[in-house]
Design a protein around this nucleic acid. Structure first.
Lengths: 208, 208
DNA sequence: GTCTATACAAAGATAGAC
DNA sequence: GTCTATCTTTGTATAGAC
């Protein structure tokens, strides 16, 4: 049954969600230390004390935000599967990841911030599920190479290149904008970016 | 005349330098807000008050650090010149930039941190001298392309790719280490990285 | 669940002696 | 130039009323 009247539970969930969004906005730009709960509460439309009712501490809030974005960030890599045509699969990955850079730049930036610090809070994930994911995808790439469907490169470095080139448009957006005068929200520039990154990467790994 | 006895001036310079080094260490990992002057002073071997004698405020220190590293960061790009053979020049750029990522990872990371925040303090540089440098090097690349010595790609995207792929090994070092178990300080891994990045980039822009 | 008031700690910066 | 002592601000977190 569809219920339009907000329940207690749904109202609480909406508030949590608003707080998490606001927190991501600030954390991704100023880091955890550069962000005050006052500002987050203000942006989320709640009082500071009320925020602390939903999240017991600043660090708890920070961790909640991190956990939230990890899926968004990893989705493109998860979509890479061995039964696809290698070059098409990589082309598709680049497209998806650049869409993340365009639609969730804060998530990309916060992930980057966390890495810069040595990933203190993601360390467990890094060495566990994330490493497993990368190992799995590296094996996919290795198999493609063994089948001569991809040029012989180190799979891990290829994965790093895919990340780096797509991530860059979110993390260094300030620089990209200063140099080109454009952002990924400009549809033409977005398409041009996808095409160029795809071309440069693909030609570097095509079998000859 | 060579003088081994430290002068007043040289002692002051040595202190400034120690403070700047210590500040870079912390700022690059925790950002300006995540760093306390107490810690910086301790690492530099001076008192907090003494630090504030040399740098009037935290922000002044932060700006001094930024200015200091800009040259290190830009040196590889400055070295890119039109009279070189295009592919050799780009190969050389990748080598130099990866050396920066290995030897000055803090500088790379602080630069990245500043970009993530929208480069509030580098904005002027970004839109001035840095943009000029990129425009200049983009023209070099454009000329190479016009002369059919390089495949037809957008020069700006090529520059971004060069940055992103080399910068990644400093900024995401935590991830690189978690996945590969190696750092750029491992000579074999460093050489493997240089070779792979060079190969993937070069094959993507070679004229056919 | 939400508010007001407030405790408490951290950290930047200054004053003034030496 | 360097130190001790101190002021002041900011910001996290809690207590307790409603």
């Amino acid at each position: 049954m569809v219920n339009k009247a907000p329940t207690r539970r749904s109202r609480a969930a909406a508030k949590c969600s608003a707080i998490l969004d606001a927190a991501l906005e600030y954390f991704s730009q100023f880091g955890m230390h550069g962000t005050s709960l006052e500002k987050v509460a203000e942006l989320a439309g709640v009082s500071k004390t009320n925020l602390l009712y939903y999240f017991p501490s600043k660090e708890a809030l920070y961790i909640a935000v991190l956990k939230n974005i990890l899926d968004v960030w990893l989705a493109p890599l998860r979509a890479l599967r061995e039964d696809q045509e290698p070059l098409a699969a990589i082309r598709h990955y680049i497209q998806l990841k650049l869409e993340v850079s365009r639609d969730h730049p804060q998530a990309s930036r916060l992930f980057c911030l966390e890495m810069l610090q040595g990933a203190p809070l993601l360390k467990a994930e890094l060495e566990g599920s994330l490493k497993a994911l990368i190992d799995e995808k590296s094996r996919v790439i290795e198999n493609w190479i063994a089948q001569k469907r991809l040029a012989a490169v180190e799979p891990q470095h290829l994965v790093f290149m895919l990340w780096a080139t797509t991530q860059h448009y979110a993390d260094f957006a300030a620089q990209v904008e200063a140099v080109t005068g454009k952002t990924l929200n400009d549809e033409q520039f977005f398409n041009q970016t996808v095409t160029n990154v795809q071309h440069m990467v693909i030609e570097g790994i095509r079998v000859r």
